[in-house]
Design a protein around this nucleic acid. Structure first.
Lengths: 210, 210
DNA sequence: CCGTTATACCCCGTGTGGCGGGATAATTTT
DNA sequence: AAAATTATCCCGCCACACGGGGTATAACGG
């Protein structure tokens, strides 16, 4: 193979059995080595500068600072470190919070020997390892609602609202009078049952209308 | 195996060579069969009710109606049909537009025999097949900017603004006076160089501040 | 033919944003 | 230790964009 160095992996996991098991699996690979394995995010963060991990396997449910917040801190201190979340849960809120925090992958604890190592490989390749259900969850999050109550024109205007445009700007951009723009917006508000631009944007995002 | 039926796959691809090649690959599998292969989205849409595909392999660059719009129409007429985009490009705008349109997967044309069939398997498993770079693109899209110019309090207030809350609601929710909320918002506007709630939301989304 | 859509106008009251002012505590710099 | 900076908090005034209420017409599609 001729690999000069093994990639440095840090493990953060409070369950000692799982921690040892992960360590064994990672160390069994020719391409990776565990630089350290900690039982808490605090310990991991404290030793970040010394351990200099290139990849972190991070449990979400941790005592004290949880894995989400731990991810934020690590990404802040070491932006080029890739973090893979490991969790028993596939709850959508948790997944999205983890991704927002800076995780580049999300696998479940049921991941076996092969899945764990291929997740590491995928990260090195510049990918984003995810379990099937997580991937689908993430993709579904992009889908625009095809059953929008809004007309094409209204959707167009809602789009402009979401870009921060004023009544005047919208009317100019669409070559219609300001009063017409107002009428459209009134109709949008009525259909979405809101009464302000920001509320309309919030609802639009929530119901994936744009 | 005892599979009662093969999954019905439709191919939409204007290049005849690629179309034939994909057809051969899919038909070589025990689990899938090509019900029809079309050179345009229009033809595919016209025969949707007859072909009843469970999966569609959709090229993005098509003459006439492109793959993005074709995806919208097919998802509208047949919501349970899973669509996998096939493209030479990994341009981020195109990828996100395709996903918004309703695609459940995105692979590149360089995909070989194995990759194509495993993408189909992944879809059947309820997953979302993506090439490494696409997956990373999608995940990166979730990451919140760790170098936000806003303070914690300001970020908190921006979050409430993005939820459509008014000054009064924000002040009540945070137990501060309405005037204080206004001051914070004023500071947010100054830092983001905007001058309205919706503009602030637009910038926040653009720069991933929340 | 009628419902829907897109267009346009008027009046009116308030929420929002722009511009002032000032205060305190924590942190950093000097 | 003193000075400067930053983050947080509070108040008032005023202009105007915004939101709510109507009314109306031409064009389109089923």
């Amino acid at each position: 193979m001729g690999l000069p160095f093994k990639k440095r992996v840090m493990i953060v996991e409070d369950d000692q059995e799982i921690r040892n098991s992960f360590t064994l699996i990672v160390n069994s690979s020719q391409k990776f080595m565990v630089v350290n394995a900690y039982g808490s995010a605090e310990d991991a963060i404290a030793n970040l500068n010394r351990d200099k991990p290139e990849i972190v396997l991070m449990d979400i449910e941790l005592p004290g600072v949880n894995g989400i917040h731990g991810t934020k801190v690590i990404k802040d201190k070491s932006p080029h470190t890739d973090i893979i979340m490991v969790s028993v849960y596939e709850d959508s809120e948790l997944v999205f919070e983890a991704l927002k925090a800076g995780a580049s992958g999300y696998i479940t604890k049921s991941a076996n020997y092969m899945e764990l190592l291929s997740a590491l490989d995928e990260i090195v390749k510049g990918g984003a390892p995810m379990s099937s259900r997580i991937a689908r969850m993430v993709i579904d999050n992009f889908h625009v609602n095809p059953n929008s109550p809004l007309t094409k024109r209204e959707t167009e205007i809602l789009q402009l609202i979401s870009e921060g445009k004023t009544y005047t700007q919208i009317s100019e951009e669409l070559f219609i009078s300001k009063e017409t723009a107002k009428t459209h917006i009134k109709n949008i508000y009525s259909k979405l049952q809101v009464n302000s631009k920001s509320e309309a944007i919030a609802k639009a995002n929530l119901e994936k209308l744009i």
